[in-house]
Each structure stands twice: as C-alpha cells, then as structure tokens.
Lab assay of single mutants.
Amino acid sequence: AMEMGLACVVCRQMMVASGNQLVECQECHNLYHRDCHKPQVTDKEANDPRLVWYCARCT
C-alpha cells in the first residue's frame, strides 16, 4: 500500500482542511481523514500527541 502515498484510504484524497487532517492508525498504518473515518475522529484524539490512535477496523 506504500504506493498510495499519503492518501486517505476512504476517499483516496490527500487534501487536508482545517479540522480534517489525516490521522494514521498505529496498527495497520492506514491514513484516514477525520471526517471520513466512522466514527469521526475528535479534536481531542487528533490533537493529543500522546494518544495512540487505532482505526475502527483495528480497535
């Protein structure tokens, strides 16, 4: 999947907007926009540098 680069696995886009940054699952290393992931990634989750985030598939 490395050839995908830094794109969201849901929408396949790399564009990021304020409040909709890409977050990386620490287990599978897929990237998700906060708005694309279900459930939506919260501000607290996205902005906490100590948080280890896992996508819905890996939790």
Rank of each mutant, 00 (worst) to 15 (best):
M4L: 11
S18G: 12
L31Q: 15
Q40I: 13
G19A: 10
V16G: 14
R50S: 14
V52T: 13
D35F: 07
Q40A: 12
A17W: 02
E27P: 01
C11P: 00
C11I: 00
L22G: 12
R57E: 11
W53A: 07
P39Y: 03
G19I: 06
L51D: 13
K44T: 14
C58K: 00
R12V: 02
E24M: 02
G19L: 10
P39M: 04
Q26K: 10
L22A: 14
Y32W: 14
L51F: 10
R50C: 07
K38T: 12
W53L: 03
V41L: 11
C36F: 01
K44Y: 02
R50F: 06
D35W: 08
Q21I: 08
G5S: 12
C8V: 00
V9M: 04
G5I: 04
V41K: 03
L31F: 15
R12F: 04
D35V: 08
N20M: 02
N20S: 10
A17T: 09
Q21N: 09
M4R: 13
A7W: 02
G19R: 07
A7C: 11
A46P: 04
A17Y: 08
A17V: 08
C55I: 00
C58Y: 00
P49N: 05
A46V: 12
H33E: 02
Q21E: 09
Y32A: 06
A56V: 06
L31S: 14
V52W: 02
D43K: 05
N47G: 13
E24P: 02
M4V: 12
P49Y: 03
C36R: 01
L51R: 14
Q26R: 11
K38G: 06
V23R: 05
R12T: 09
W53N: 07
C8N: 01
C25M: 01
C55T: 00
V23L: 12
H29G: 11
G19D: 13
R57L: 06
H37L: 06
R50A: 13
E3W: 02
C58Q: 01
E3D: 09
C36M: 01
N30F: 05
H37D: 12
A56L: 06
C25P: 00
D43N: 14
G19S: 10
R50K: 13
K44C: 14
Y54V: 09
R12L: 07
M4C: 11
M4A: 10
N20G: 09
C8Q: 01
C25W: 00
R34G: 15
N47L: 09
C28H: 01
C58F: 00
C55K: 01
D35T: 13
E3H: 05
H33L: 00
A56W: 06
V16D: 13
V10F: 04
A46Y: 10
D48E: 09
V52N: 11
N47Y: 04
Q21A: 11
